[in-house]
Write a protein that binds this DNA or RNA. Structure first.
Lengths: 126, 126
DNA sequence: CTGAATCCTAGCAGATACTG
DNA sequence: CAGTATCTGCTAGGATTCAG
């Protein structure tokens, strides 16, 4: 008991800053944001390009997600007063830095997804 | 166009392995799993301890999440035939390795959450 | 104590149609 | 082209109750 009470290890971040971690995870962890960010990583993209690149996303969801990302300062939105209208979305510096830990997670998945699938199979076999 | 077609940069993982990344994110990104994992990081915990530690979680959700984590091989469940019954949950080796990239993400949040909040405030001010 | 089963609800995602 | 508006269905998740 006593040895568990106040260990000052880095993992406390998960619980102590839990709410904030969750907030960011709510953004990064939802169905589409990551795919959008991944697409934008290669440079600015127009709304239509994103709609095409992020397969299966509805217009509505794309709009909403972009708003959220914009609100958090992860993405910028630039509308050009032309005809036809053109709007470009681009990762901010902040958005780019986020990519790093996210890629670390993606790397972990790459290494371990087969193990996970095996575990699931074994588990379901019962 | 051409310069964007096949860049072999590491970020392709997000799109190319998108489904798998998403699968893991569905696990790690949901409302409770991370808090559970964070709690278990300090050692094995009983059901009741988890229920208490992970504030606000319902019995149902705790059970479901633990099942999922168990299925993925991130957590082990050990039931002891005693009275009253005792069940202990513990991170597996796989679960521990997951902690590393997750903590990287948590660290990013620590560094940037204030920036994000500022962005949100500025955005909402309109 | 641990957890399964049921019921119930809010909120979110998809489809569709419309607009500047 | 880049959205907005509306409607609807679904399901994640909370509360409660029962059981081994």
């Amino acid at each position: 008991m006593a040895d568990r009470k106040q260990s000052p290890n880095p993992c406390d971040r998960i619980s102590s800053e839990g709410p904030m971690v969750r907030e960011v995870l709510d953004r990064v962890g939802d169905k589409w944001s990551l795919l959008i960010i991944g697409t934008l990583q290669r440079g600015p993209r127009r709304f239509g390009e994103l709609h095409q690149a992020v397969e299966g996303i509805s217009q509505r969801m794309l709009t909403l997600n972009l708003r959220h990302l914009e609100r958090d300062g992860l993405v910028t939105r630039s509308a050009y007063a032309e005809v036809p209208p053109r709007v470009e979305y681009e990762l901010t510096r902040l958005g780019e830095t986020l990519l790093e830990p996210v890629l670390a997670l993606a790397a972990w998945v790459s290494e371990n997804h087969s193990a996970i699938e095996a575990n699931r199979k074994a588990f379901d076999a019962r």
